[in-house]
């Protein structure tokens, strides 16, 4: 009788990744970094508002013609949108499932309470919920215009000014941007550890990069509502 030579049949790659706490964290890290890359580009694009309506609206129009004639009108934009939706959903589902697991693993608290550094973990979770709600509002406000009174398709400059002329528009946006800053500050460094890219010699550089990214994103995004509020952009 011949012996079976393959004794270690393992589940598929996708199964292994999604079923493991380490693998699911990898999904969070990769989707998080995709969103982070998008946010940097998005922030830089937003700064065009400082060069006037024609340039800003022209940039928005160019985004729709990007990749033509190889790609059909708006296809490049749709590809980005699909990638982002997949990233947001994967990130949020993994965050929810991992958080549930973490809370279940620690059912009873210590009687003697300490000011614990679960600070970062808690701000990541609350910050994530704020970001999820913000993303929905932001799309309905400035992409589809569903919750935007007098929305004008093709005139993003005017729409942005409208949003930042209301107190609630400013409050929602600025809170979300601060949440992004905090999230990126811990998230970028975390992702490096999750992907096994951190090391003792690289730690300082990673932390500095995380702080710099968080700061540049926060200042860049916040500059737009501040400029509208102060009348620099009108």
């Amino acid at each position: 009788m011949a012996l079976a030579t393959r004794t270690d049949r393992r589940p598929s790659f996708a199964r292994t990744v999604w079923d493991s706490s380490v693998g699911k964290k990898t999904v969070m890290a990769v989707s998080g970094l995709i969103m982070l890359l998008y946010l940097v580009v998005h922030m830089l694009g937003n700064l065009k508002i400082f060069f006037g309506a024609a340039e800003f609206d022209g940039y928005a129009h160019w985004l729709r013609t990007l990749g033509e004639p190889f790609l059909h009108h708006e296809w490049a934009l749709w590809i980005v949108r699909v990638v982002l939706v997949v990233a947001v959903v994967a990130h949020a589902v993994a965050a929810y499932q991992l958080s549930r697991r973490d809370i279940k693993a620690r059912p009873s608290k210590y009687v003697h309470k300490k000011a614990r550094t679960s600070y970062a973990t808690r701000t990541m979770r609350w910050g994530g919920i704020i970001l999820a709600l913000f993303i929905v509002w932001h799309v309905l406000d400035l992409t589809t215009g569903t919750v935007h009174p007098d929305f004008q398709a093709g005139h993003p400059y005017q729409n942005v000014i409208d949003t930042f002329s209301t107190w609630y528009g400013n409050v929602i946006y600025i809170v979300a941007v601060l949440a992004v800053g905090l999230h990126v500050r811990h998230g970028f460094w975390s992702a490096a550890q999750t992907l096994g890219a951190g090391s003792r010699t690289r730690d300082r550089a990673l932390k500095i990069t995380a702080n710099a990214l968080a700061l540049v994103l926060t200042v860049g995004f916040v500059s737009v509502p501040v400029a509208v509020m102060t009348g620099v952009v009108s």
């Binding site: 706490s21 380490v22 699911k24 693993a105 970062a120 975390s190």
Partner: peptide, 9 residues
């Protein structure tokens, strides 16, 4: 056991 959130405790 729970997962790692890099709290460092």
């Amino acid at each position: 056991f729970g997962g790692c959130t890099l709290a460092g405790e």
